[in-house]
């Protein structure tokens, strides 16, 4: 997932069509276009799992239906705790058969419409609810061939977040994706020092609407806060040369070309 040595590479988030959409076929086509473009760039496609608790189609079923190529090292699928056990097993089995190998395991956002995994379903003792730790441990046990990553939130109380990260690593996590940062972050620096052998992928916020990050950071960012995502990304690339970068809410029309340039890719798709 780190791309070829010596080149910068990116993990690009793609959101699958939502069930509530009135234009599912068009949404699927857009999904396919973005998927193919990211694959062609040599980047990693990262597909969300019912983001924000909104019911969406699963990434693997979109890939299968659309006949999209699966390149295991260029594909990562998010998986959260809001699934029935039957759906979870089917999803993992289907992904395994398709050749998917990378998963980002997160607790996720629930809703009334989404079932929640129960502790006994993932062989979790002594816990009232299933978090990413229990889900990851269960997948690691039953699907050891998968490479499993976890999330890190530098805006949570550090003591709690690092304690949770210890448990995630102990459960089998082999890469870490941070919440979005927009500048050098002392907590992320601490994470890098603490886990020098675990690949850390930093999320860069690619929307100009910085205030949408208010919930994530835990304080209100004024709506009129000026923010230049591409300039910020360039700065972060310099600050954290050892890290991969996860790009959420990337503008494919307005930003993608510049991201390819930052990766040293020419218009033809070849690396310089």
């Amino acid at each position: 997932m780190q791309g070829q040595a010596g080149k910068r590479t990116f993990e690009v988030e793609i959101i699958p069509p939502k069930h509530a959409s009135d234009k599912i076929p068009a949404d699927l086509q857009l999904f396919a276009d973005k998927y193919k473009r990211v694959m062609d760039s040599g980047f990693t496609v990262c597909i969300t799992d019912n983001a924000m608790g909104l019911l969406a189609f699963q990434g693997h079923e979109c890939i299968e239906y659309l006949g999209l190529p699966v390149k295991p090292e260029q594909l990562s699928i998010h998986l959260n705790t809001f699934h029935s056990k039957a759906d979870l097993v089917k999803l993992l089995d289907d992904c395994n058969a398709m050749g998917v190998r990378n998963f980002l395991i997160i607790s996720g956002d629930g809703s009334d419409r989404l079932p929640k995994l129960q502790p006994h379903e993932v062989e979790a003792e002594g816990t009232a609810s299933v978090t990413s730790v229990e889900l990851l441990a269960w997948i690691k046990k039953h699907y050891p061939q998968f490479k499993l990553g976890v999330a890190f939130n530098p805006y949570e109380p550090p003591e709690d977040e690092f304690e949770k990260m210890e448990r995630k690593i102990a459960a089998g996590a082999s890469f870490i994706v941070t919440q979005p940062i927009i500048e050098k972050n002392a907590i992320v620096d601490e994470l890098l020092e603490k886990y020098p052998d675990v690949p850390v992928i930093i999320e860069a916020w690619m929307s100009k609407k910085l205030h949408l990050l208010s919930d994530a950071v835990g304080y209100t960012i004024p709506e009129d806060t000026p923010f230049d995502p591409l300039t910020t990304l360039e700065q972060l690339l310099e600050i954290y040369p050892q890290c991969g970068f996860y790009l959420s809410i990337l503008g494919f029309k307005t930003q993608y070309g510049r991201v390819e340039e930052l990766a040293g890719i020419t218009k033809g798709g070849d690396a310089q």
């Binding site: 069930h19 599912i24 076929p25 019911l55 189609f57 699963q58 079923e61 979109c62 239906y65 029935s84 759906d87 419409r113 989404l114 079932p115």
Partner: peptide
């Protein structure tokens, strides 16, 4: 019960 989540193919067939 817990209502199921429909698959992509079943949704497309329903259309």
């Amino acid at each position: 019960n817990q209502p199921r989540v429909p698959s992509l193919r079943s949704v497309l067939a329903s259309l």
